[in-house]
Write a protein that binds this DNA or RNA. Sequence first.
RNA 1: CGGGGCGUGGCGCAGUCUGGUAGCGCACCUGUUUUGGGUACAGGGGGUCGUAGGUUCGAAUCCUGCCGCCCCGACCA
Length: 445
Amino acid sequence: MRLSRYFLPVLKEDPADAQIVSHRYMLRAGMIKQAQAGIYSWLPLGFKVLKRIEEIVHEEQIRAGHIPMLMPTLQSADLWRESGRYEDYGEEMLRITDRHGRDMLYGPTNEELITDIFRTHVSSYKDLPLTLYHIQWKFRDERRPRFGVMRGREFYMKDGYNFDLDKAAAMHAYNRHLVSYLRTYERMGLQAIPMRADSGPIGGDDTHEFLVLAETGESEVFYDSAVTDLSFGDRAIDYDDVAQCQSILEEFTSKYARTDETHDEALFNDLPEARRKVARGIEVGQIFYFGTKYSEAMGATVQGPDGKPVPVHMGSHGIGVSRLVGAIIEASHDEKGIIWPEGVTPFHCGIVNLKQGDEAADKACENLYEQLSNAGLEPLYDDRDERAGGKFATMDLIGLPWRITVGPRGLKNGVVELTSRKTGESEELTPEAAVAKVILIYAGS
RNA sequence: CGGGGCGUGGCGCAGUCUGGUAGCGCACCUGUUUUGGGUACAGGGGGUCGUAGGUUCGAAUCCUGCCGCCCCGACCA
């Protein structure tokens, strides 16, 4: 993309209403524009990151054997009356009436809808196990939306639902989700720690929340410092392997890590003092096993081998896709702006032309642009006629991990400059070598 | 929902106390100049001062209602 043809409304000054760093940078980098309290338009740059995160979530869900689909945002109140949650959910549910006076709602979650789909089409134990998911906009009418996209009323979320014949099978689905989530967050450059949590209005006994440690997190968390040494890494995983999923779950959840809701002071104090950490975290996902709560209320049963109806065991699992955009920035920024992890960056490499209009510089930039594009990467070429300072400030703010700087002085010696946004270190390379290096960096993903 | 605060060009703000018909910086447009870390100069466009009503010769300014937004708390992906 050429910056002169893009829509990137960056701001020099901090918007007054943005309190936390991710919100400030998202506004300043032209990623979002607030439409109402807790409701945002996603401008092109923000939209790219949102879609990139969504793509990673899809890839990892599909890898784990889960099946993508799409359910509507507007749902019928009748379905929610059936589960009993129409009354229970309270003011957070946005209720709407259509022209015929029918009660509807903007879905805050989809257990009812998915259960309805399941009971209509699945009747045999042979069709299990089954895990369906979708990524869709949700609405929860928060009392006080804040922190930009991290606590909006409208938010984009992946929610998935597993249907299994018995508790053991459902627990494997639970474990499988935990493993796939570990992988998902790591690909985004995040460490998200699974913590024993509280199930809230969804109900159920087993649940873990995934927390990204950050000073601005809304939850207080207590953990054994040893959990931060754990890393999923590049290990091979067979999602059908019950024992393997179980052992990974144990590896990542056996150390003490809890939110304030489930914190146990006595257990915590058993840890050596140096390992007891109290910090704050941003919740970026949660997994639940809730047994037959919805299947019994809504008649979601299958016929077992003996011909008798059995209510299915279910779980649900969520990843806050839009919230992750903010969470990643909270976890990865400096005083100049955002620093995107390579996995989610909106553009792979910036190209800064220090002398737009200089024949050699223009040509060198065009060549870089073409070579990077041909390699399947997406560069952002700043071809505006602006001072170097402004160009660098914009690049630093929007946080592309790599930048190639081209100027007539360097070109005299046949070199351009390749700079890491993260370390700030630059090296002088021939244009060909710079391109090769950037291609190599992204080769894995 | 309780407590507090704020609505003045796209963004950040002054002007409100003490009424006299709107100003600054950034951004934007034109020209010249400049260009290696947010160039300089000159000219220019853009605001029924959130909204409705009231007081007054006259309201951004005073009074009342409404709307919107933000912050602190209790709740949530």
